[in-house]
Computed example of a mutant assay.
Amino acid sequence: MADRPARRALGGRRPSGALLGVVPFFAYVTVFLLIPTVVVVVGAFLGGSGGFTLANLRALGQPAVTSALWHSVVLSSVTAVGGAVIGAVLAYAVSTGRPDGILKKFVTSLCGVLAQFGGVALAFAFLATFSATGYLTKLLTSAGLDSSGGLWLYEWDKGLMLVYLYFQIPLMLIVFLPAVEGLKPQWREATETLGGSTFLYWRKVAAPILMPSFIGGLLLLFTNAFSAYATAAALVSQGSPLLPLEIGGSFTSEVILGQENVGKAMALEMVVVVAVVMTAYVVLDRRASRWLVR
């Protein structure tokens, strides 16, 4: 009892109610992230009778599953690279504006909205514009131009790539803009003072600093596209060319029954891919954050 004042003098504190504020967050993460992940992992190793089996994992080698995985990787990679390059260029253009300018605030706010604009609403917007009965398709047809009836919109390697770029580019701008704004004017002035050109500055100074942030944004865009479901489900109604659609079909198919645990195995496959990519993103983000300290 006598050592209580000593513990208080050394900085010891009684537990307070400050941690109660994060209880809703942990409850949300547990219900919507941890529990579903556990269900997926356990279900991937359960058979129809409830016993342990590896048949679900062996089913991942089926042609339909491997094809869906390959299509998802290609779609995610192409839209990630395209979105990263275009978004990075736009981020640099925005960074050259006035920090408190109306145009910069408008562009960043708009990109924040567009980056979250997806799912069925985005699919409907493209259908209303580019489908066979869409406004732009009818406009081109009336002008005597061949618009192919908007059939390209329903193809995973054409329509979905354009649709995914719609939210990939704004997301890259938001993620990459802090890194571009972290470039200090003194670095460019020092390069010019030493006789370096603009090309030398970008190659020797800016590019090495921005590269971790760029690759990190690229990985984030890949994950964003790889896990997207609602937009593709609303546009592609024939077959399941993507892994998320293949997973959804295993739970809702009326032709092949009893494939729920195979769907969980495919979901586990996606979890592993996303975990690897996001781990690399965190490592690169920590490295890039060293240059953002002013």
Rank of each mutant, 00 (worst) to 15 (best):
K204W: 13
F199C: 12
F167C: 07
R188S: 08
S253P: 02
L10D: 09
L218D: 07
G144F: 12
L46T: 15
L160Y: 01
P24F: 04
R188T: 03
G83M: 02
G112Q: 08
G119M: 00
A228P: 00
L136D: 11
A59Y: 14
T37P: 06
A55H: 13
W291R: 09
Y166A: 13
M211I: 06
P99S: 09
T66R: 13
T53Q: 00
P63K: 00
G134T: 11
V255R: 01
V205M: 14
I215L: 06
E269M: 12
G249H: 04
W187V: 07
A128C: 05
K105E: 14
T231C: 05
C111Q: 01
Y92Q: 11
T198K: 12
T252Q: 10
E246D: 07
P170F: 10
A84I: 09
S16P: 01
V272C: 06
E155V: 15
I86T: 15
S76K: 06
A123K: 06
L69F: 10
L103F: 12
S213D: 09
R7C: 04
M172N: 04
T252H: 09
N261R: 12
Y166W: 12
R286A: 08
G248A: 01
Q259W: 00
V236H: 01
L183S: 05
I209D: 04
F130Q: 04
T193P: 00
L136H: 14
P15V: 11
T137Y: 05
A179Q: 10
G50Y: 00
G47I: 02
A234H: 11
I215G: 03
V205A: 14
V94K: 02
L210W: 04
V120A: 10
I35M: 00
R294L: 14
G134F: 08
K204L: 15
V271Q: 11
A225D: 01
F106T: 15
S76D: 03
L220F: 08
F26E: 09
G11R: 02
I174W: 07
L243M: 13
W152T: 02
T30G: 13
R58N: 13
S213G: 11
P208E: 13
F226R: 10
T141R: 09
K105S: 15
P241R: 07
R98D: 13
M161G: 09
L10Q: 14
K158C: 12
F25V: 08
E155L: 15
A84D: 01
R294P: 15
K264N: 11
A121F: 14
G150E: 00
T133P: 03
G21M: 10
V74D: 01
F52W: 13
A91T: 11
A88E: 01
P36H: 08
M172Q: 05
P63R: 00
V274D: 05
R294W: 14
A206D: 00
G258N: 15
M278T: 09
L103I: 13
G217W: 03
F130A: 07
T137A: 07
D146G: 02
G149C: 02
V272N: 06
V74W: 05
R7T: 06
S148H: 15
V40L: 04
P36C: 03
P208N: 10
G144M: 13
A2R: 14
T231E: 00
F126C: 03
A234Y: 05
F167M: 04
E254G: 06
